[in-house]
């Protein structure tokens, strides 16, 4: 089994939530605030909400979709917002644009709902990331598996979900390293196919571990 020239250095991350000034009480206001809010806010309510609510594997996709369903009772728009897959995006600007487009299209088609007050406002927040390197690195797939077995959800989320935007590639830290350092493109691809919407962080980690262990057993 190949030894990596550059080891995988594990990091854990924690997030401090900052409350922003934007507050949407209607779909029209949601559209306006989607335009004005920070990138960190878009990230918080989409990428990070997946990590915060990873244990919800049925029908939860992002904070915007949940609010449109639970507070505005607009199931069709909620479904469309929920169907946006963060894995398709290399930049937050594209994700912001698509979110806004969906809300605007809905408001144009259903103007009677655009100004209807929601049960609860949508409060825009953003996550401030604090990272701490862990005293652990892997040079082989075996060492990688060992680290994965003892990894916190926060570290897994950082490397598997949050990393997608950092890399500006449609992949994650693990797959990127497995492919470039261990020259195992098939394993890297299968790891990247693990569905982050229908798995919890625990089950996603278990699946990745199982794939890597199968590779080791070959």
């Amino acid at each position: 089994m190949k030894t990596a020239e550059h080891p995988f250095r594990f990091v854990t991350a924690a997030y401090l939530t900052r409350i922003c000034n934007q507050k949407a009480r209607t779909l029209a206001e949601l559209s306006r605030d989607l335009e004005a809010c920070s990138d960190a806010s878009i990230f918080y309510h989409t990428f990070q909400s997946l990590g915060r609510y990873h244990f919800l594997t049925e029908g939860f996709s992002n904070d915007f979709a949940q609010w449109v369903l639970a507070s505005c009772n607009r199931a069709v728009l909620a479904e469309k917002l929920a169907s946006l897959d963060i894995r398709d995006y290399l930049a937050l600007a594209e994700l912001r644009s698509d979110l806004r487009q969906l809300v605007d299209d809905y408001c144009r088609a259903h103007p009677q709902f655009a100004e209807q007050s929601a049960f609860e406002p949508f409060y825009f927040c953003e996550g401030i990331e604090v990272t701490v390197p862990l005293d652990r690195e892997a040079r082989t797939l075996e060492e990688f598996c060992e680290a994965l077995r003892n990894m916190s959800n926060a570290a897994f989320q950082y490397h598997f979900i949050a990393s997608r935007l950092r890399l500006h590639l449609r992949t994650n830290d693990f797959s990127h390293w497995i492919e470039t350092e261990l020259a195992l493109p098939t394993l890297a691809k299968r790891a990247n196919q693990i569905d982050i919407y229908t798995n919890t962080l625990d089950s996603g980690r278990e699946k990745l571990l199982s794939l890597a262990e199968r590779e080791l057993a070959r």
């Binding site: 854990t12 924690a14 990894m151």
Partner: peptide
């Protein structure tokens, strides 16, 4: 919580 979650607190506190 699982041992890794406690380890994460220790990692953050190490700084």
């Amino acid at each position: 919580l699982g041992a890794p979650e406690i380890s994460q607190l220790r990692a953050l506190a190490s700084r």
